[in-house]
Design a protein around this nucleic acid. Structure first.
Lengths: 149, 149
DNA sequence: TTTGATGCAAAGGATTTGCATGAAT
DNA sequence: ATTCATGCAAATCCTTTGCATCAAA
């Protein structure tokens, strides 16, 4: 079940992490966090940078990288790398329901899905092979309905 | 069912591809193909390079990159990128039975597996979302039995 | 004031590519 | 003889980092 995290709660988590670790709140961090939280996932660094710059002209790419790392550290963001080689960030599991991805290799659209049967079998497969399963990555690639028309 | 491809058959496929495309056979290509075929998968470029150099001192990294691309083009090899960021090559599906991977995040061991139930559900999930499934990537990460002891 | 954050540009690490040279046809 | 392949080093691409400067606490 999605924790239904609000941008406000997320900012609280970020601020808590910041003060707990003796870091500082900055305009850049707030803007980048805001942009990320509102976007709803799967954004590449340059997409985040572009959106952040609409709110604040003087945000650098390096700061986006650094801030997304920070958001990942405090548990709000999670990085993913699909076949195109770009790192993307999305809301972290735990704050959002766990899911995997369907990706259209033609238009690039990314659809999230979750299948309990698959999750259960993954656990079973891991156990059968003597593994203690920690996390997984599953991406299905194909052509979406629109692109087949 | 594994096509049980022999190194000989693979070399034939490579040679057919080479002559069909007006390319040339070279000592380097034969050595790299041999090393790759005998290794049985999941090798990084520098591992392939190291092994190739045992057979022929003067093989360059660039040639390994180029040759593995060639092997992928002619359908013998397939590249994979796991979480560690390195590209690895393995025998391509179609020449080997399709499979996915279990990876120990402690010692790095990679175990192949195949689960029909998961494959079937993946098809179902794709269809349900209007996708025509072409391929997928599934990696399960955890700790293997040895590393837990 | 003190210390962390930022921007910029330089540095990194994996992979690719340009070019003169060497090998295959 | 041609034409492709190779080795080398320079160039790319994404990401990280060093450092002087700026801003939060």
């Amino acid at each position: 079940m999605p924790t239904d995290i609000t941008p406000q709660k997320a900012q609280d988590i970020l601020h808590a992490y910041i003060s707990k670790n003796g870091l500082k709140v900055s305009r850049q961090r707030e803007v980048i966090a805001e942009v990320f939280l509102q976007a709803g996932g799967h954004l590449k660094i340059d997409e985040l940078l572009e959106r952040a710059r609409k709110l604040d002209e003087r945000i650098s790419q390096a700061t986006v990288y650094r801030t997304m790392k920070l958001l990942a550290e405090c548990g709000l963001a999670e990085s993913r790398t699909f076949h195109d080689g770009f790192t993307r960030y999305e809301l972290a599991d735990g704050h959002e329901e766990h899911h995997d991805h369907l990706i259209c290799t033609s238009c690039g659209i990314i659809v999230e899905f979750m299948d309990d049967a698959i999750e259960a079998r993954q656990e079973a497969v891991a156990k059968k092979n003597g593994f203690d399963l920690r996390h997984h990555r599953m991406e299905l690639y194909g052509h979406c309905r629109k692109c087949r028309e």
